[in-house]
Simulated scan of single mutants.
Amino acid sequence: MPTLDISCDDLVVADPAYVAARLGSDTLWREWWPDLILTAAERRGLEGVRWTVAGAAIGTAEWWLEAVRDGVVVHWYLRVDPVKPVRGQALARLKERYVASYREHLWRFKDEAEAGRAAGERRPGSEPAIVSGEDAGAAPDGPSTTSPTAKR
């Protein structure tokens, strides 16, 4: 198991193709983590990118993009071993540095991608990509008439 095994998940209410294109940009990573060298190992289109990581740490990183409702959940993984041995509080600070950079940059991207949409409001022109089992048979404006859990 790598010394640092980080995962974060965030919903971005935007077109999944737009999110994949923006987050798949190679130049983005140099800004977010300047001490890491990410080399694309597998470009998976709308499902994200996997990288090998070198530089200050050795290992792998991944964006897994999961279309959900009218947006996409961005799953970020960083599984690395620092090149210089790090333990205790220094390891905790290093982990928090990578997470803080992720959050700062992804949330800024999220704000840009969701600009003009009120919280809780559906993305204009979108249809849900995935619906829960209870919602699967529901009419657009009401409960399902076929679901055993539907309110009648």
Rank of each mutant, 00 (worst) to 15 (best):
L38I: 07
L38Y: 10
L38T: 04
T39L: 09
T39R: 08
T39G: 05
T39M: 06
A40D: 12
A40L: 04
A40R: 04
A41C: 02
A41Y: 00
A41Q: 01
A41H: 01
E42M: 04
E42G: 06
R43W: 03
R43I: 08
R43N: 15
R43D: 14
R44F: 00
R44E: 07
G45V: 01
G45S: 02
G45I: 02
G45E: 05
L46A: 13
L46E: 13
L46I: 15
E47Q: 10
G48R: 06
G48Q: 06
G48L: 12
V49G: 00
V49Q: 09
R50Y: 05
R50A: 15
R50K: 09
W51V: 07
W51H: 07
W51L: 08
T52K: 06
V53N: 10
A54D: 15
A54E: 15
G55F: 07
G55A: 04
A56V: 13
A56P: 14
A56W: 12
A57T: 04
I58Q: 14
G59R: 04
G59I: 05
G59M: 06
T60I: 11
T60R: 11
T60D: 12
T60G: 11
A61W: 11
A61C: 09
A61V: 06
A61G: 11
E62R: 09
E62M: 09
E62I: 00
E62T: 02
E62W: 01
E62D: 06
W63L: 15
W63N: 15
W63K: 10
W64R: 15
W64G: 10
W64N: 13
W64K: 14
W64F: 13
L65T: 05
L65N: 03
L65D: 03
L65F: 03
A67W: 08
A67N: 08
A67F: 04
A67L: 04
A67H: 09
A67T: 10
V68P: 00
V68E: 11
V68M: 05
V68R: 11
R69G: 08
R69A: 15
D70W: 10
D70P: 07
G71L: 07
G71E: 06
G71N: 06
G71V: 12
G71S: 10
G71W: 04
G71T: 11
V72L: 01
V73Q: 01
V73H: 01
V74C: 12
V74I: 12
V74L: 09
H75L: 04
H75Y: 08
H75M: 03
H75D: 01
H75F: 03
W76N: 03
W76D: 01
W76R: 02
Y77L: 15
Y77I: 05
L78V: 11
L78C: 12
L78T: 08
L78R: 08
L78S: 06
L78Q: 14
R79Q: 10
R79A: 11
R79S: 07
R79W: 10
V80L: 11
V80D: 08
V80R: 08
P82K: 07
P82D: 11
V83Q: 14
V83F: 10
V83S: 12
V83M: 13
K84A: 14
K84Q: 13
K84L: 14
P85F: 05
V86Y: 01
V86W: 00
V86C: 06
V86F: 03
V86M: 10
V86I: 11
R87Q: 02
R87W: 00
G88P: 00
G88A: 09
G88N: 05
G88L: 01
